[in-house]
Design a binder for these strands. Structure first.
Length: 413
DNA sequence: TCTGGGGTCCTAGGACCC
DNA sequence: TCTGGGGTCCTAGGACCC
């Protein structure tokens, strides 16, 4: 029994995307619903209603497979803006219980409720009130897991679904976890599961038969963490961190899968331009500058490569990102090979260091102002109102450093 | 099964430096 | 010529999560 025990809530929204869609279209309620795209499209299921799950449909499954398993399902396109909006409402409700809230993704959060008994009463009472308040204020169901670690809270919220509350009493962590499949441990996916099964480890309790040192030898750092997790500890890494210490993103990326594979250079480079703009925009929103620019390229046969380049000084400019990514593309694309996906990824964020070159700095600043103005126009008039790729779409023209004019401010604004 | 898009973290090898 | 050891940065790939 630990001397000092945290009380962590893991709050997980039930079938979040589906539930939000139901609020916008009550007709969907009680039916088999698949969110993520249309039945014939290239893509996967983002979320499935409990009705659809009965037919074996689950997230990450190809849409076409879902359509075969459950032909009567209603297929709905995803609406990220709606989900963000509702995610903020969820955050608002959670924040009214404790300031120590950390959104772990768009539809789940950790709360550190340690020592709040005097304010909220016994933990289960608090959980039930949170449960009710969430429903009353967002019209959405959630499940709540309570434990002495993030890990135990997370696993117990999964076991509480749907619309339940589950508290693992401090001291009972190992007993709670022992009968569960290793796959129930967050971080254990297909590959790790197979590797563990090969050792005869199928249930979490099976870990107890092995020395920690053996697991470390076999799986490295991950083996050490696994041994701790099997006992319910937040062993290492992010799980160990304090709840609510909010973190800046470490990378930003956008990618696009074509509905039909293409080897048309004009189309491909125009996509890279558009993706570069999207990434640049996000960088400016965050006030971040990136040093490493990465291209992702997936061929028809699904083979995928990434190629990166690190700049001497960081950037948030669409044009600089595009220039790099285009060079990487031209140097690595197997000529005429059909491409399925392109992606632009930036990382290595830094503060913008003062440059030696004042002229270059001035030019860069002008660009930044112009781009921010364009960002604001897009906010007002929609994504298509302004595009630096305007000239690219038809049959791409070269743009040089000497000719930066005429980019922002084109379009129908 | 014909496989999205946005992230995080880890590993491993090579370059380079002391 | 027969050759260490560590640290850091960079790149590529992969597992995993929602």
């Amino acid at each position: 029994m630990p001397v000092f025990s945290r009380t962590i809530f893991h709050v997980d929204m039930d079938a979040f995307f589906v539930s939000v869609e139901e609020l916008f279209d009550p007709e969907l309620k009680g039916k088999a619903v698949v969110v993520g795209g249309q039945r014939h499209e290239r893509g996967v299921v983002s979320a499935a209603s409990y009705e659809a799950r009965k037919f074996g449909v689950h997230s990450a499954m190809p849409l076409r497979t879902a359509a075969k398993l459950c032909p009567q399902a209603i297929f709905v396109d995803g609406h990220p803006d709606r989900y963000r909006q509702y995610s903020e409402r969820v955050y608002g409700v959670l924040g009214s219980f404790t300031p120590l809230v950390e959104m772990a993704s768009i539809d789940e959060a950790y709360l550190d409720m340690t020592g709040t008994e005097r304010l909220h009463g016994p933990v289960l009472d608090a959980a039930h009130r949170l449960h009710q308040k969430m429903k009353a204020e967002t019209q959405l169901n959630c499940s709540i897991g309570i434990g002495s670690s993030r890990l135990v809270a997370k696993v117990s919220s999964a076991k509480a679904k749907p619309h339940g509350v589950l508290w693992v009493i401090p001291g009972c962590e190992a007993k709670f976890l022992a009968p569960l499949d290793v796959r129930d441990i967050p971080g254990v996916g297909k590959v790790t599961e197979k590797n563990l099964n090969d050792l005869g480890i199928r249930k979490v309790g099976d870990f107890a038969r092995f020395e920690t040192s053996f697991l470390e030898e076999r799986f490295g750092k991950w083996g050490l963490a696994l041994a701790g997790k099997s006992r319910g500890e937040d062993a290492g890494g992010w799980f160990d961190s304090e709840v609510g210490a909010d973190v800046d993103p470490k990378s930003i990326s956008h990618e696009h899968t074509y509905n039909e594979d293409t080897s048309d250079p004009a189309q491909l480079e125009s996509t890279l331009m558009r993706l570069s703009e999207m990434v640049g925009r996000r960088l400016r929103e965050h006030g971040s500058y990136a040093r490493t620019i990465q291209l992702k390229l997936r061929y028809k046969d699904f083979s995928t490569i990434t190629r990166a380049h690190t700049l001497a000084s960081p950037t948030q400019l669409d044009t600089e990102i595009f220039e790099q990514v285009r060079a990487l593309f031209r140097n690595n694309w197997k000529k005429n090979a059909e491409i399925r996906l392109l992606g632009v990824h930036v990382s290595g964020f830094e503060e913008m260091a003062g440059q030696g070159d004042l002229l270059e700095d001035g030019r860069r600043q002008k660009w930044q102002q112009a781009l921010s103005a364009a960002d604001r126009l897009r906010d007002k008039f929609g994504e298509t109102s302004v595009s630096l790729a305007g000239g690219m779409r038809g049959g791409f023209r070269e743009r040089t450093h000497e000719n930066p004019a005429g980019l922002p401010g084109k379009g129908k604004s």
